[in-house]
């Protein structure tokens, strides 16, 4: 009873605070369209993945501004970004039966401007390749704090199974965050963080299966 009361009270305060949040910005603030290309080796094992991130137009404008204003090269942005995301497993979770994939440093990294949008590309090699014939391989990609929303691009093909055996398929499930979580994320101001566990709850789940 009292729990429910405090809860409603808290939500009311939160909602009112939301009304006045200067800038009325809420998480996520920017988005990244993701393209993933899964590399299969000749034995039919998944040996690596090539990622392409396409930032939203507005973020791209701001970032390009920064590079112009500070005279910094986009290459510096790329290096810094890779260093940052490298500490977070490149925002990528790959699992097979609860075993998490380990991968080395990003290779073949590239940054550029595509249709006025910033894009970065890099490849990751799995330290131990996964065999998709044994069981499902599940992967999710998310920026931990949900400051950026990362979803596979709407334009196809956003997911490619390169050199995969013909029996291989993938299935993409859209994220299903509950309303409370969406409301919570929306209540977070631009300088606030909901912790590093928030983003993954807004992530798509992709399953790769070879039968």
């Amino acid at each position: 009873m009292s729990w429910s009361f405090t809860r409603h009270w808290r939500m009311a305060v939160l909602t009112i605070a939301m009304c006045f949040a200067p800038g009325t910005q809420a998480h996520p603030h920017h988005w990244i369209d993701v393209f993933t290309e899964w590399q299969f080796n000749p034995k039919g094992l998944i040996s690596g993945v090539k990622l392409r991130w396409l930032f939203d137009d507005y973020y791209s404008v701001l970032l390009l501004d920064d590079t112009t204003a500070t005279g910094k090269d986009l290459q510096v942005v790329l290096e810094k970004t890779l260093r940052n995301i490298g500490r977070h497993r490149y925002f990528l979770q790959i699992e097979q039966q609860g075993v998490k994939a380990e991968f080395g440093d990003a290779k073949h990294a590239r940054i550029g401007v595509w249709d006025h949008r910033i894009e970065i590309e890099f490849s990751l090699a799995l330290k131990a390749p996964f065999d998709p014939r044994q069981s499902d391989i599940v992967f999710r990609i998310a920026e931990p704090t949900y400051y950026f929303e990362m979803l596979h691009a709407e334009e196809s093909p956003a997911i490619v199974l390169r050199d995969a055996p013909p029996a291989c398929r993938y299935r993409l499930e859209p994220p299903k965050p509950d309303a409370a979580l969406v409301a919570y994320a929306a209540s977070l101001g631009i300088n606030e963080s909901g912790g590093d566990g928030l983003g993954i709850q807004f992530a798509e789940t992709v399953t790769i299966r070879c039968e």
Binding site: I32, K80, T81, N84, H88, L188, G194, G195
Partner: peptide
């Protein structure tokens, strides 16, 4: 930049 915030920011 992506990933810049995660380690520096305190959670609300």
């Amino acid at each position: 930049l992506p990933g810049e915030r995660t380690t520096t920011e305190l959670s609300r």
